Amino acid sequence: MTVAAAQAARTDRRPVAGGVHDPRAGKTFISWGGFQEDNYVQEYDHRRRTWSAPVRVAGGDNDSHNYPTLIQADDGHLLVFRGLHNKELWVARSPRPHSIAGEWSDTIIPEGLGATYPMPVKTASGDIFVFIRETAGDFDKTYPTDTRPMKYVRSTDHGRTWQSFPWCIAPLDRSDNLNEIYIGQLRYEPHANRIAMVWTLAGGGPEGHLHDRYHRNLYYATFSPADLHFRSAAGHDLGTTVDDGGQERYLKVAQTELQTVNPRSPDYISLVGSAEGRPFVVWMQLDEQAAVHGKAAVYRGGWRHQDLGTGARFRDMEPAGDGSWLVYATPDPAASGVDTYRLRPGVSWRRKSSLVTPQPIQRIEVIAGHRGPARLLLTGNSSAREVTVADGDVYVV
C-alpha cells in the first residue's frame, strides 16, 4: 500500500519505533519524516480498511538525524520523539488517546540536552526509556569532537515528566580515538524485562580527533529497567555505566580492523535479537571493493560467527516463531524492492521471498505488535541527500 506518495525526505532513522498497532482502537499508527524532516503520523483503521491523511505533528529542524520515533504510552496517548541534532530532545503528544486527531502538543525534554538519534522503548511496567547520544564537546570544549557517549531519560508517568541519567555507555580516551557510539538497534525483550542492544564505535582513528571518520567492532549488552544495570551475554554485571575496559573485556562480539577505502564499516545499522534463549546480532561490513558482506553471531558460551553472503543490506527483522527470524533487506541502494531471508542463528540462512516496490527503499521497520495487513513500514528513497527534497514514497506492506 502506498500511504503517502512523494512526501518522504532522506532519513537516518534506525530500525526502532517506526510504528505500533493499537488493539484497543483497532488501528495501526506509523511515523515518518517529510520535507525538512518534519514529523508526520498516519493511522490505519482496520475496521474501515482505510488510511488517514498524513498529520504533521512537529518540525524537524532541516536535519536527517531528527527523524520521528513513535511509541504508545500505557494511557493510550501517542508520543513522537525527535532530537534536534546535538541540541535538544522533544516529544509531541497526541491530544487524545488511541487517535492522531486534533492539535498535538510539542514540548522540550530538558533532561535530554544534546540529543541525537532518539530511541524510545516502553517496558512491561509502562515506564518509557529514551536512549540518546550526546555530543559532549558542544557543551564542554575540553572534550574532543569524537567524544559522543550514550545516555537516557526515563518517564514513569506516560511521558509527562522525565528523569535524566548520566552517560551510560562511555568508552572515553581510547588510543584509537574511537569514542563515539552508534547503536544499531534496541529491542525490548519482555520475557526477561530487558533491553538488548548492539553498537559499533566511531571516531577519528589514526588521524586524530575526527567525527565519524572510522568505524570499528561490534558490541552487545542488555540493560535492565529494574536495576538500571548493563550485563553481558554471559550475564556479567557491569553496573550502571559501561566504560571502555568493561566494553572490551565483556561485550565485544566482533573485532574488525580500520579500513582506509571504506572506513565506515561496520555499517550504522545492526540488528539484535534472541533465539531459543541465545542472544544474537546481525550486521554488515564493507570490503575494499565496497561490496556489502552480511554477518551474524550467536552466543553459545562465546560468540560463534556466521557468514550471510554478499549484497543484502539488512534493515530490520522479527521472530518467525520456530527459533528462526525473518530478516528484511534491500537488495542494492539503486534497486527497488525488499528481500526476505530466514535466519536460524548459527545454523542456516536462506532467501525466502522478494517484493517489488515502485521506488528503491531506504528504511524498513517492523511495526510493533503488527496485525495484518499492516506489517512493515517502508520509506522510499528520496532522490537527494538533502531533506529539503521530499519525493520518497511511504509504503506499508
Rank of each mutant, 00 (worst) to 15 (best):
P225T: 15
A226R: 08
H229F: 06
F230M: 01
R231C: 07
A233D: 07
A233V: 08
A234D: 06
G235M: 05
D237W: 01
L238K: 04
G239T: 00
T240A: 13
T240C: 14
T241M: 14
V242M: 04
V242R: 06
D243A: 06
D243H: 12
D243E: 10
G245S: 09
Q247K: 13
Q247G: 10
R249C: 03
Y250Q: 08
K252C: 00
V253N: 01
T256F: 01
E257C: 08
L258C: 14
Q259V: 02
V261N: 00
V261Q: 00
V261T: 04
P263H: 05
S265N: 00
D267L: 14
I269L: 05
S270K: 11
L271I: 13
V272C: 09
G273C: 10
G273N: 11
S274N: 11
S274F: 05
A275S: 15
A275K: 06
E276M: 13
G277Q: 08
F280V: 14
V282L: 10
M284G: 08
Q285R: 10
D287E: 07
E288G: 11
E288L: 07
A290W: 10
A291G: 01
V292Y: 03
R300W: 00
G302Y: 04
W303Q: 12
Q306W: 15
D307F: 13
